[in-house]
Design a protein around this nucleic acid. Structure first.
Lengths: 204, 204
DNA sequence: TCTTGTCGCTAGCGCCGCTAGCGAATCGAG
DNA sequence: CTCGATTCGCTAGCGGCGCTAGCGACAAGA
């Protein structure tokens, strides 16, 4: 009897943990949907709690604070970005085309999913970046960039630094455009200029 | 007598306007100092009002809101950035050196004056950017970049777009580094890579 | 059955940006 | 010189923010 009770208790506990994990995923999903629909300013802890139909303190039993929720959304974004970069890179014919494809995919992602992009690359400094502890999805996304950059690296260029530099160029284009500091028109030509200057003459 | 009274009234009014303008400058100066010392999060309307020794509503008689105060600080920042870019550009010996000098001056500015940089290029979308109505100081700063970029533009490169692209690269380097997404070490080499890729082979 | 512990709730703290509306000081006319 | 009109900075407060203390209901184990 005692053993039966213990087993039942254990399965009950498992169900609890399952439900709890599900609720956590719900919070992240709703936070993301809300942010994408109305912007991060609309994602307040009160509003988010109301949308998931729990009280505010429940959020804090899952996450340390609002920034941690944004960080969770950012990790999701990294996964999607990595997938899109990979797809762009692997379906390109030449190194130059691959570099252009990931550049276009990156900036397209930033424009199509601004809330996700902000969580990943402008807000939320909580999650580590340039260290091994950074989320795997982030390494994966950066790795896609790196794999596209390395083939066009010149003699003596350190590939990692060159990738970071290319990333910075793409990031600058996305953020300056999205904040209205660069006109939307001309984006393709700016991107082409950036890419062109990263490819050695006569390559591609 | 009536005319004397009117004249006196006018000079009194002038003094008033002078004092009012002085108070406005005080607000902007204190806002900037506070932001540079403790970050923009510490620049609340209550705190700022206390520092200038007036009540909160006084701020709103000068500025539409907090964003407008940040915008005023941003304009100051543009003036300083423009001056530093000009100095860097004019004291360089060759087109390549000029491009490198403004790039270094730009990123150095972003790192040395993070609060100012944020007001100018990451927050405060209030002030117009890519239009003629943009503040003169902003045009001036961009013009300095343009004057450094144009000499190295290749045949067929649209100079304005190329300048924007170079700016985006610099901006990306500054923001990704300052938010901890790029390691501080390696900045000089990344900057050198960016500059090197913007200069046609065999130039400078 | 009763104790113990878990869990989500209500309520509230100290902030924020911003504003309504009052009272004192000043101005212009008689 | 007096007195209504106007200017101007103040106190006080609104609604909302991130976050948390602490209570009550409910479930688990003796």
């Amino acid at each position: 009897m005692a053993s039966t009770a213990r087993i039942v208790a254990m399965t009950i506990q498992k169900r609890r943990e399952r439900e709890r994990a599900e609720r956590e995923r719900l919070i992240v999903r709703v936070a993301r949907e809300l942010a994408e629909a109305e912007g991060w300013d609309s994602v307040t802890t009160r509003r988010l709690a109301a949308e998931v139909e729990y009280s505010q303190p429940v959020l804090y039993s899952h996450f340390k604070g609002k920034d941690a929720i944004m960080a969770a959304v950012a990790v999701q974004g990294c996964e999607e970005l990595a997938a899109e970069l990979r797809k762009a890179r692997t379906s390109a014919g030449s190194p130059r085309q691959a570099l252009a494809a990931v550049g276009e995919a990156y900036t397209a992602f930033g424009r199509r999913r601004p809330a996700l992009y902000d969580a990943m690359f402008t807000h939320a400094v909580d999650l580590p970046f340039a260290t091994p502890e950074a989320p795997a999805a982030l390494h994966e996304a950066f790795g896609e960039l790196a794999k596209a950059v390395e083939p066009v690296a010149a003699e003596g260029d350190e590939p990692e630094l060159l990738t970071e530099t290319y990333w910075a160029g793409l990031h600058g284009l996305v953020t300056l455009m999205r904040s209205g500091r660069l006109p939307e028109g001309g984006h393709e030509r700016r991107l082409a200029l950036l890419i062109g200057h990263f490819v050695p003459a006569g390559m591609g």
